[in-house]
Simulated assay, not measured.
Amino acid sequence: MSDELNQLRREVARLRRDLDHVLRVIGQEEKLPEQPRPPFLLLDAEVISIRHSSDKMPILLKAEEGYACIYLNDNEGRARGLFQVDDEGSARFEIWNKDQEVVVSIGETKEGAGEIFVASADGKPRAGLKAHELGGIVSAQNSAGQTNVLMLGKDQGGTFVVADAQGRPVAEIATVDGEGIVSIKGKAGYQMAYMGCDENRGVIAVLGKEGEQAAALTSNEKGGTLVFFDPKGEPRASLPK
């Protein structure tokens, strides 16, 4: 008799669970008996996987000493997103393409500032945005990893640098003491042309390959002046005379 009673109790409990499931499916949760809600859920494990079928695991949580991460997987089981906190306490979110290359990375630097990197399909960084002690930095790289464009925002003003395929700066726009300047460099790294101004005049200068001045166009209250220099940088002629 006791065994039959226990069997009946188990059957009733199973029927109640089945009924609760049916009520949730048809949207009749309000008819479920009220149950105390636990204040928190504690899962004591190093790896926790969330499945929606026997062979599909879209979410995986992993915890180790000083490290925690969440993987987001696609239907093929490939990791496509990663949110992690490393052993130094830095947080980072990464997006991976189907070839498992990191194409977007959002995180923090060792100094605690923010940074964003965007990569091409082969995982090579092509653009970046970060905060540095010098200011805000935006950069763009070519396929070889050389920086071709750099923009820096500082308290004193901004700087915009353009580089060649090897990463050598060839043009720069900047502010110096509140005034704007433009500098053009040759392949050897020497400044070949310059444009600047102050509160009284504007200047355009053309330089030789060794940096010596070859010609200059300036303006003042009387108009413009064009000056020509010899190979030693000494003025030789001017217009108007």
Rank of each mutant, 00 (worst) to 15 (best):
E65Y: 09
K62I: 12
Q28A: 11
R51N: 12
K62N: 13
I70S: 04
A68S: 03
V47G: 06
I59N: 10
E65I: 04
L43W: 02
K56R: 15
P33T: 14
L43M: 08
C69N: 02
E30Q: 15
G66P: 06
D55Q: 05
E46M: 10
K56C: 10
L60E: 06
P39N: 01
D44Q: 14
D44I: 04
L41W: 00
L43K: 02
P58W: 06
I50S: 08
C69G: 00
L61W: 00
H52N: 13
L42A: 12
S49A: 07
H52E: 05
P33L: 15
P39D: 05
K31A: 15
K62Q: 13
G66H: 06
V47K: 12
K56H: 14
D44R: 15
E29M: 04
R51V: 11
E30G: 14
E65G: 09
I50W: 02
H52Y: 11
E65V: 04
P33C: 13
P39Y: 03
F40T: 05
Q35L: 14
S54Q: 07
F40Q: 12
M57A: 11
L41S: 07
E30H: 15
D44N: 15
E29R: 15
L42R: 08
Y67Q: 04
K31E: 15
E65C: 05
R51I: 01
G66D: 06
E64N: 13
M57N: 14
E64M: 11
K56A: 10
A63P: 05
H52F: 07
K31H: 14
V47C: 11
E34R: 14
Y67L: 03
P58V: 07
H52K: 08
R37Q: 10
G66M: 04
G27F: 05
I59Y: 12
A45D: 08
P39G: 03
G66C: 10
A68H: 02
D55V: 06
L41N: 06
K56G: 13
C69S: 09
I48R: 02
Y71K: 12
C69L: 07
R51D: 12
E46N: 12
Y67K: 05
P36I: 01
D55L: 04
R51P: 04
A68W: 00
L42M: 11
I59Q: 06
E34K: 13
Y71D: 15
I70N: 06
R37V: 11
Y71P: 02
P36S: 10
P38I: 07
I48S: 10
E34Q: 15
K62E: 13
V47I: 12
H52I: 03
Q28Y: 01
S54P: 01
Y71R: 08
